[in-house]
C-alpha cells in the first residue's frame, strides 16, 4: 500500500520544487506593487496588472505617484544583444564542431589525437581562468564591447563540448554508408555534407540547443566584456534593475520571465534533443 501512494506524492513534491519558484515569479510579475508587499502574501494576484510588462515593453507608468520611465530602450537593446551574441555563437560553434569532428573521427592528419585531447581537456578548466589575460588581449585588438569579441569568447568556451558531442554522434554512424559513397566516387566533402551531416541532424540540434542555452545564460563574461548597452545582454541588464534606488520586484520578475521564454520553448518543444545532448555530453 505504501509504495502505491509514495509515487504521486513524490511527483507532486518534485513539481512544486521545480516549478513552484517559477510560478511565484509569474504570479508576482502580474501583481500591483501594493499587492506585492501585502501581508500575508497573495498566492494569486488579486488584481491582474500588466504594468510591469508594459513598463518593460514601452509604456510609461506611475509608481507611488511618480512617473516611471519605460525601460524599453534599454530592454529592447539588451534583448537584441542577447539574441545576436547567442545566435551567432551557436551558429559558429555548431558549424566548426560539425566540420572539425569529422576530421577528428574519419580523417588522419598529424597531431590529430593530441589536438583533440587538448581541446576537450579545456572542458575541465573553468572559462574564467583565462578571463583576465583575455580582457587585456581584447583591449589590444579593440574587441571589448563588440559582437565579434563576445561571440568569439563564447565560441571558445562552448566549442569543446560541441566537438565532443559531434564526435560521439559521428562515431555512432555506420561506416558502411560512407564506404559505399566512396566506392561510388563521392569525395570526402560530398560525403560529409550530403550523408554524414544530414544523418547527424539530431546531434546537431542537441549541440545547438546546449550552446544556445549556455550562451543565453552567460553572465560573468558579458559582465566584463560588454560594459555598455552596445553589446550588454539581458543577463547583465536585468540585475541592474535590482540595484536601482528602490527594488522593483514586479519589474524584475517580469523581466526575468521574458528572459526565460527561449529556454521554456526549448524545454517544451525540443526536450528530447536537450536530454539526449546532456546524456551524451556527460557520458562517452
Amino acid at each position: 500500500m505504501r509504495r502505491i501512494s509514495a509515487k504521486p506524492v513524490g511527483v507532486v513534491v518534485l513539481l512544486i520544487w521545480s516549478l513552484g519558484p517559477i510560478y511565484w515569479a509569474l504570479a508576482s510579475s502580474f501583481m500591483r506593487p501594493t499587492d506585492l508587499t501585502a501581508q500575508p502574501p497573495h498566492f494569486l494576484p488579486p488584481v491582474v496588472t500588466w504594468q510591469h510588462y508594459a513598463n518593460l515593453l514601452g509604456f510609461n507608468s506611475t509608481f507611488q505617484g511618480q512617473q516611471v520611465q519605460s525601460v524599453w530602450p534599454q530592454f529592447s537593446r539588451a534583448l537584441v544583444n542577447s539574441l545576436v551574441t547567442s545566435g551567432a555563437a551557436t551558429i559558429v560553434t555548431v558549424a566548426l564542431a560539425a566540420l572539425g569532428a569529422y576530421a577528428f573521427v574519419r580523417l588522419r592528419f598529424p597531431g590529430r589525437d593530441a589536438i583533440f585531447a587538448l581541446v576537450v581537456a579545456t572542458l575541465a578548466i573553468p572559462a574564467y581562468t583565462v578571463m583576465i589575460p583575455l580582457y587585456r588581449l581584447m583591449i589590444v585588438v579593440h574587441l571589448v564591447d563588440t559582437y565579434l569579441g563576445v561571440t568569439l569568447i563564447y565560441v571558445s568556451a562552448f566549442l569543446p563540448l560541441a566537438l565532443w558531442l559531434m564526435r560521439s554522434v559521428y562515431r555512432a554512424l555506420p561506416l558502411s554508408l560512407e564506404e559505399a559513397a566512396a566506392l561510388d566516387g563521392a569525395s570526402r566533402l560530398y560525403t560529409l555534407f550530403r550523408i554524414v551531416i544530414p544523418l547527424s541532424a539530431p546531434g546537431l540540434i542537441a549541440s545547438a540547443i546546449l550552446t544556445f542555452l549556455s550562451a543565453w545564460g552567460m553572465f560573468v563574461v558579458p559582465l566584463v566584456f560588454s560594459p555598455t548597452l552596445h553589446t550588454k545582454p539581458l543577463t547583465v541588464l536585468i540585475p541592474e534593475f535590482v540595484t536601482k534606488n528602490y527594488v522593483d520586484y514586479g519589474l524584475m520578475n517580469a523581466a526575468g520571465l521574458l528572459a526565460i521564454i527561449p529556454p521554456v520553448l526549448v524545454v517544451i518543444f525540443l526536450n528530447r534533443y536537450l536530454v539526449s545532448g546532456l546524456m551524451a555530453g556527460a557520458g562517452k
Binding site: P21, G217, M218, T235, I238, N253, A259, V267
Partner: peptide, 21 residues
C-alpha cells in the same frame, strides 16, 4: 522530465533573482 530540466535551462541570473524575491 521537462519540468525537472527547466530550472537548469534558465539563465542562472534569472534563477537567482526569482529566489532573491
Amino acid at each position: 522530465l521537462a519540468a525537472v530540466i527547466l530550472p537548469w535551462a534558465m539563465p542562472p541570473i534569472v534563477n537567482a533573482i526569482i529566489w532573491l524575491w
